[in-house]
Amino acid sequence: MRRMLDLIYTSALVASAGALVTIAVLVFAQIGGRILDRFLLAMGREVVGFQVPSLAEIGGFLFVGAAFLALPATLRAAGHVRVTMLAQALPGAAARAVTIIVLAAGLGLAAFAAWHSGVQAQDSWAFNSVSFGMVRVPLWIPQGVMTLGLILFAVALADELVAALRGATPAFREAEAARSIDDGGH
């Protein structure tokens, strides 16, 4: 179970990184097209006018994918920002209780977010909503990826909550502790 969950979080992170690399490759191709045209123009030849169709829209979709798919891994790496003053000030048992409350609240909100993101993707599917630019992209695809990211986020929060309820230290608490030692924060 543990290995499977970790595999899921890592796969989502790899997909997120893949989206970032795709953005870089597409944009670089677009810039390369302009450089080629400059070169051809300087040689007195006709320009090719190469461009990545709908680059701006597709870039936006890829950014959505990259951001939402990294949610679980970011949570576990303590990448998400929160105020840790109380957690640090309280004695062990009370701090654990607060961690459980925070994880439960986060899980509830993530479930809310995932549910309504799913409804939105389903509506876009039912409405046949499509993008506006040159390439006709059905909106349920990027919205579906967004929903998947939020579902995995909820799973990761549930995972951490179960760990905390069992009396273990959730991964994000470990990462927070490790970071504050590294940086000599306290």
């Binding site: 006018g49 461009q51 709908s54």
Partner: peptide, 16 residues
């Protein structure tokens, strides 16, 4: 698509 097509017909280079 329409503005891209217009540019192409006129021999202009459509640019996003």
């Amino acid at each position: 698509t329409a503005t891209e097509q217009l540019a192409n017909i006129l021999g202009m280079v459509p640019t996003q």
